[in-house]
């Protein structure tokens, strides 16, 4: 009994530390102007595109949803990568990491807190972006396929979880935040564009090269799964506030969430391992 009590008392502060660090990251996001600027840009570009009339038909909406969702995806990636890339280097540069780690804050808690903060910040940004998207879409189509939107936002957020974890790992491997952000951008966009087709390419290659590409196909995080824009743009989820049969299978949705959680955990574990071996000298 006494041992379990001591375990609880020793773990509780850990969670508090993580939440405290995460809270600082979230506060930093809404102090910085990135999110607001990107939101205003999305709104302006979407409204500008919406004002264009094609063949005097005001019921055309899919191109607008397409453009708006593309902007949302790009903006969310910008926020996720730039926010996560500067966390650890900025703490080192301003030397605030030393008093932080001198307090009873473990390096694992530090990484977990930074990840949680960045991930929650991305989630808040996503809610803002999709809120505008929902208003724009509903005002044109007069329907709101609620379940499909919920699934899409959730999958988007899970994808950003992997991206944030990947960038945090990059921030302890690469020297500068700019190089880390650039490399992560290229990797993430590359996976989203070609990741799902590496098996096709591997089958076209013969011999060892093909096997290497196939191994890479299994090894990379399949971020392209989480991009379900086509379902939203082309109304595959049906319409109206009702349970629809064409949304993504819930089991598949849960499976994708577990895959993302495992990948995120693995990347954070690697970050922690690398970060633990780093010497912190003034």
């Amino acid at each position: 009994m006494s041992s379990s009590t001591s375990w609880v008392t020793s773990r509780n502060p850990d969670a508090n530390n993580i939440f405290a660090i995460a809270g600082v990251v979230v506060k930093e996001m809404y102090r910085r102007k990135d999110f607001y600027v990107l939101l205003v840009l999305i709104v302006l570009i979407t409204l500008m595109l919406g004002s264009v009339s094609f063949f005097d038909d005001d019921r055309i909406v899919r191109y607008l949803k397409d453009a708006c969702l593309l902007l949302i995806w790009l903006s969310s990636l910008v926020i996720a990568i730039t926010t996560a890339a500067r966390q650890i280097p900025a703490e080192r540069e301003s030397r605030t990491i030393y008093p932080l780690l001198a307090k009873p804050v473990g390096r694992g808690e530090f990484v977990a807190g930074k990840f949680l903060g960045c991930w929650v910040a991305c989630g808040i940004a996503l809610v803002g972006f999709y809120f505008f998207f929902g208003i724009m879409s509903a005002s044109r189509e007069h329907t709101l396929p609620f379940l499909v939107y919920f699934q899409a936002i959730w999958l988007h957020w899970m994808c950003l979880g992997i991206v944030v974890a990947l960038v945090l790992l990059g921030s302890v491997v690469f020297a500068a935040p700019s190089s880390n952000a650039t490399i992560c951008f290229i990797v993430v966009l590359g996976i989203m564009f070609a990741g799902g087709h590496l098996n096709t390419l591997a089958l076209q290659m013969r011999g060892f090269r093909g096997e290497v590409v196939y191994a890479l196909y299994y090894a990379i995080p399949h971020l392209e799964w989480y991009d379900v824009r086509d379902f939203i743009i082309h109304n595959w989820g049906g319409s109206g506030l009702r349970l629809v049969t064409h949304n993504i299978d819930w089991l598949v949705w849960v499976g994708a969430s577990i895959y993302a959680a495992l990948y995120t955990g693995m990347l954070l574990g690697c970050t922690w391992l690398v970060f633990q071996r780093r010497t912190m000298t003034l």
Partner: peptide, 9 residues
């Protein structure tokens, strides 16, 4: 992966 990925498009 291909089979599972087809649920998303």
């Amino acid at each position: 992966i291909d089979r599972f990925g087809r649920h998303f498009y």
